[in-house]
């Protein structure tokens, strides 16, 4: 019984430290658009589940766009991207920071992305908002919150 208790304590400590480590390794933090986005932006968006649905739609449109789909096919794993995007977008909309990916700068450093390709993703983002019936003005809260990453992503 005593041994079980020790094991449980070690496991708990390990989980805690893993969680702390994960938090410390989270590659991005919430952006600060001006003027600020409403504190209930995530709720307006429909919550994390709708963010996930939006991310699925986003990659549907990305993978149909010949300007950028080859890049995601070559360098990205769409399922992993959807997972990470759901975390990132949830976070920038005011949700918890559970983002497990690399920073935007690190993740895009070697991709040599130009402004047209970045804009193509923005167009896909708007298309995805329409697809999951997010109001344009609510969609702009997300665009406002993601826009500060532009210079980290566009390196060409």
């Amino acid at each position: 019984m005593k041994n079980k208790s020790v094991i449980a304590t070690v496991l708990a400590a390990g989980l805690c430290s893993a969680a702390a480590m994960q938090s410390a390794m989270a590659g991005e933090s919430k952006t600060k658009p001006i003027p600020g986005i409403p504190s209930n932006s995530l709720e307006l968006f429909g919550g994390k589940q709708v963010v996930h649905e939006w991310a699925v739609a986003l990659f549907y449109y990305i993978m149909l766009d010949r300007r950028i789909n080859w890049m995601f096919r070559e360098f990205g794993n769409p399922e992993r991207q959807i997972f990470l995007n759901t975390q990132l977008e949830t976070m920038v909309l005011g949700g918890p920071n559970e983002y497990q990916g690399a920073s935007m700068a690190a993740a895009h450093a070697d991709l040599n992305i130009n402004m047209e390709q970045f804009n193509a993703v923005v167009e896909a983002a708007y298309n995805a908002c329409e697809r999951v019936n997010i109001h344009y003005w609510t969609c702009n809260q997300l665009i406002a919150a993601l826009a500060p990453f532009t210079d980290d992503i566009v390196t060409r």
């Binding site: 952006t31 600060k32 658009p33 001006i34 665009i143 406002a144 919150a145 826009a147 500060p148 532009t150």
Partner: peptide, 10 residues
């Protein structure tokens, strides 16, 4: 400046 994307800057 960038009219569109520098949303965290004045």
């Amino acid at each position: 400046g960038d009219a569109v994307y520098t949303s965290d800057s004045l």
